[in-house]
Amino acid sequence: MIVINAKNISKTYNPDKVPVHALNHVNLEIKKGEFTAIVGPSGSGKSTLLNIIGGLDVPTEGTIELGGEDISKFSDNELIDFRLKHIGFVFQAYNLIPVLTAEENVEFIMLLQKQSEKDRKARTVELLTKVGLKDQMNRRPSELSGGQQQRVAVARALASKPEFILADEPTANLDSHSTATLLDMMANMNEKEGATFVFSTHDQRVIDKARRVITLEDGKIVSDEVR
């Protein structure tokens, strides 16, 4: 079942001055539960594509459907709501809320979703246990290592039980051990939670782990390999 359907997506920055074509008529279909890596050199359009898929950016041309809904027509508020309900993000720089503890960071998403306190607490403990940080629940991001912070970020991304997890260079700031741990954990969660994972990455270790690798160059898909 196709859950991400990008049709003829183009993105041009500075169209009136010096136009930069970040994406050029990209067509992409991703099925439910896929573990996909988008790779390519810097400036190839990986992050732009991921941002458009996640509703963080809008395409200059084309449409993007997530779970059958054309999000390119959504208003700003509708997009925020859609992201809250359906998408989990993992960023390169972890991007946890610095004033909240690991536990509160994970719980925060569920609070925005207005889940009951009981459900929130249970899900938080479950996820932090899964990412191996149950003992670090009360620590703030500044008291955690980069790898630990990224694991909290993954737990946060999964907290709302999203259908899509979008990760922009999630291992870029991690050492090899943390990268391996994080990848195993995400692969495991992909199998158990059934969420569709899409990464943008340069990291060969991530590429090796992916079951589908889409390569972008100059804003175009140049290869699409399913393993």
Binding site: I80, N95, L112
Partner: peptide, 16 residues
Amino acid sequence: QYEFGVMLSIGMKRRL
């Protein structure tokens, strides 16, 4: 601003 961007991206409404 970056932090606000993150909050918006994870689904926090602007009004909130």
